[in-house]
Design a protein around this nucleic acid. Sequence first.
DNA 1: TGCCAGGCCCTCTTTAGGGCCTT
Length: 202
Amino acid sequence: MSTYAVIDFETTGLSPNHGARPTEIAVVLVSNDRIIDRYQSLMNPGVHIPYDIQALTGITNAMVQKAASIGNVMKQAAEFVGSHPLVAHNAAFDQKFWDAELERIHLPRHQKFTCSLLLSRRIFPDAPNHRLGTLVRTFRLPDTGRSHRALADAESTAYLLLHLQNELMRRFKLSAVSHDLLLAIQSKSRHQLEACVRNHKC
DNA sequence: TGCCAGGCCCTCTTTAGGGCCTT
């Protein structure tokens, strides 16, 4: 089974194109149906964290004031990730920040992102909704602590990834789920995946 | 303090609009 690097950012806003910067990152490595390693760090964004985001994440300006610089943290995180495929919930969001911050320190990204939100929409279209917290409760995944903190959300995403893989193995009678299969399912429309299920091939 | 986004997906669609999801 592939080893995946599941990442989650907490940030000062929604878009790096409008000045938002990361305040925290976590990376968990998943292999052989379990979490095998973790990396987590606060970082000093150098910009004010809006009050509503402090309330959402619990990460305050005081907490990040003495944290390491974003550049140093991102370098460590990139080394921790190595060449493993990246996974995130709503990966488009985390990918924007990952790419923007790596570009600032002149580091490239080689691997593709897999999105557990897109996979969840394909595989469990009837879930109440596809927010990470809802999926954790719906599938009774392990409690990882305070949501909207990077390590807790990264671990929840990791358990969701394992749940998705197990469901695919059950549904398609597979002994393992390759990274290529995840990418293929992610790229299919919901209706295409339903056709795959009906035809027992995907 | 509040505002700032953008890709995906559905449908009352495709010459569009709006909800979902991330912080």
